[in-house]
Amino acid sequence: MEQSAEELNKIEKKDLFTSGHRACGGCGQALAARLVADASGENTIACVATGCLEVFSSPYPDPSWRIPFLHSLFENAAAVASGVEAAYKALNKGPVNIIAQGGDGSTADIGFQCMSGMFERGHNVLYVCYDNEAYMNTGVQRSSFTPLGARTSTTPMGNKTRKKNMPLLAADHGIPYVATATVDDFRDLQRKVKTALSIEGPKYIHILAPCPLGWGHHGELSVQICRLAKDTGIFPIYEIVDGKVTNVLKIPVKVPVEEYLKLQGRFKHLFKKGQPTPEVAEIQEIANQNIARFNL
């Protein structure tokens, strides 16, 4: 369905994901889930993976969802969504927006296979990943999205590996639309959801969703941390349409990664008496590579 630029850029507030849920204050994922639901509209089915979002939003008998909500397991949201879509096709129902959603762990680790299968089969499903860079629901353990240096409860000395690059892996399935977004820019995030839903086939949106509890920052700083993630080059913002990278968000003034790292307790050990350890330079190198790769 074609939408005018005006419609695409409108911020939607429909309260389809209501307040009163049990997320921590300043939870990026709670905000993101609301923005996604409101951008999708009433004619949407949410297939949600086990994780923080599911736990804080769907306790019986008072879930926060005012669109149909379907939860099965930690690692099968994409396959469940495939089944919902198949049912709609077989029963000649719809059209309907089907959105599979989950955290970084359910997306890139344990649920990777189901998601890859959904992409490869070409289901008309949008997959939204809420990336808070660890398994938060079970107490902040490392995932394959945990960035270099970050301390989690299973990497107490700091994570030794680099983050898996899921948006590019998604795009390499040959799906028509991939985008990244952060929760500080409502308009951009919702425009991407609306754009994705207007495209037939599998879509992937990767949203950086700060977690005050796991990242060790004050809830009020979630928005600022998102901006710094972009301005340092740590989290590039772009779309990939039919395999081509477009709409790259340019960084107005490049900021050193230290500014981003210093706000978060999980990186505290990277600074000894205020002085950065060598890992900080390595993280700066990752940001530089992103800047070069996407021409940020």
């Binding site: 089915i45 297939c47 379907l70 099965s72 397991l73 099968n76 396959a79 469940v80 969504a81 495939s82 089944g83 919902v84 879509e85 198949a86 049912a87 709609y88 077989a90 029963l91 129902k93 189901c114």
Partner: peptide, 11 residues
């Protein structure tokens, strides 16, 4: 998981 989703959607 696919048949779970399909059944939950009425198939």
């Amino acid at each position: 998981s696919v048949v779970l989703g399909a059944s939950a959607a009425g198939a």
